[in-house]
Amino acid sequence: MELQQNVATEITFHHEPSNDTKRIWRTFWVMLFITLIELGLGLLLYATDWPYNLTLATKGVIVILSFAKAFYIVSIFMHLGDEIRNMIVTIVVPLLLFIWFICAFLMDGNSYKNLRNDYDKHFKESTTVKQKSNSNH
């Protein structure tokens, strides 16, 4: 089968597509493995009654694993990793706005909770856990 060539005038440099699908399948197995670890950690949080900080750390690990999956999807499946540097930068740099976006808004929510717990006793009493239980339903 003949490879596609000169598909558009915008394309100056054409890189050869790979002949086999090894890389695709390897990425699939990596993503499946990461997902299984995530699920395992999620269920571990459910099965155990860890202190708050350990729970938070485990959730942090799950978040990092999800970003690893996102990297594989964008870099390998969407072929962004194969594009030239200019292209990668024009997509990735605007996304850095998310760093501020996430930090600012989560801190805002947290601050609102703290203020309400300080000044609205009814809110605090009606929403904090009174009874610890391992119930499933």
Binding site: G42, L43, L45, Y46, L97, F98, F101, I102, F105, L106, D108, G109, N110, Y112, K113, R116, N117, F123, K124, T127, T128, V129, N136, H137
Partner: peptide, 25 residues
Amino acid sequence: FTFGAFLISYGTIRFSQNFWPDPNV
């Protein structure tokens, strides 16, 4: 950014609560 805004808004509300349902339940 649209999806991000939705999810971050969800996160903001979740962070503003003392209690949130356990997804495993």
